[in-house]
């Protein structure tokens, strides 16, 4: 397979279980020995990583602040600014095990942002979140991308919401079976063969929750009034696909 990530781009990798998503991530991180091919990183590229299924055992006491200093100590200012950027300022003193699912994922994101990464890799970052939580998390990713200019690689099998939040979607099934804008991929026959039809309906579901959530956030119904949640550019195309 062939894959290039450009600065400031949000790319989503989707694919069924066993399609090689996690192997791809591990190869990019340099955790997996390559049986063939090459991975080329831009000089000085720092990667922020949010692993899949991170569970902290209840027997392990761990404040959010201490977690951010794993493995190496960081300054209080850096910890606080990173938590703020991830939308969870003021959680420093909380125990990791007392966080909600959404807060937990944001703390993981804050940790990944500590090094000022040029590339963020998130492996199934919204597993276990409810629909509004998922939508809010992807808005946050878009905002972080806009603020920092980092490229973002998302891995997911939770299709609709993720795809509409990305610039480019790569559908993986042992090889790249199709790739392009979310609208292009969801219309591609290869993708439909893998995931079945009905993506139009799920796009609509996404839009519903998205708007619904905004009503809560801003107190009035106007979608674009909230300055902290800029929509990624391909959104109009997504709406076309859903209509």
């Amino acid at each position: 397979m062939d894959l290039a990530l450009r600065a400031g781009e949000i790319v989503t990798v989707v694919g069924p279980n066993g399609s090689g998503k996690t192997t791809l991530v591990r190869a990019l991180l340099g955790l997996e020995r390559l049986s063939g091919g090459t991975v080329t990183r831009a000089a000085g590229l720092r990667i922020g990583y949010v692993p899949q299924r991170l569970h902290i055992d209840a027997t392990l006491p761990m404040t959010v602040r201490r977690f951010l200093s794993l493995p190496l100590r960081i300054s209080d200012e850096l910890a606080e600014s990173s938590l703020k950027r991830a939308g969870v300022a003021g959680l420093s003193g909380q125990q990791m095990t007392s966080l909600s699912g959404g807060q937990f994922q944001r703390v993981l994101l804050a940790r990944a942002l500590l090094s000022g990464p040029g590339l963020l890799i998130l492996d199934e970052p919204t597993q276990g979140l409810d629909q509004p939580g998922v939508a809010a998390f992807y808005r946050l990713i878009a905002a972080v991308r806009q603020e920092t200019g980092a490229a973002v690689l998302l891995v997911s099998h939770d299709l609709h919401v993720v795809m509409s939040a990305s610039d480019r979607v790569i559908c993986l099934n042992g090889h790249v079976c199709c790739e392009g804008t979310p609208a292009h991929v969801s219309a591609a026959p290869e993708y439909r063969a893998l995931f079945g039809l009905g993506t139009g309906g799920t796009m609509a579901l996404y839009r519903h929750h998205h708007d619904h959530d905004h009503d809560h956030d801003s107190g009035h119904g106007h979608d674009h009034a909230h300055p902290h949640h800029p929509h990624p550019q391909p959104r109009p195309q997504v709406e076309d696909a859903g209509a």
Partner: peptide, 16 residues
């Protein structure tokens, strides 16, 4: 640092 990070999550430790 390595022991603790690996105890929290092995992949996190590997990535570090």
């Amino acid at each position: 640092p390595g022991l603790l990070t690996a105890t929290v999550n092995e992949e996190l430790a590997q990535a570090a």
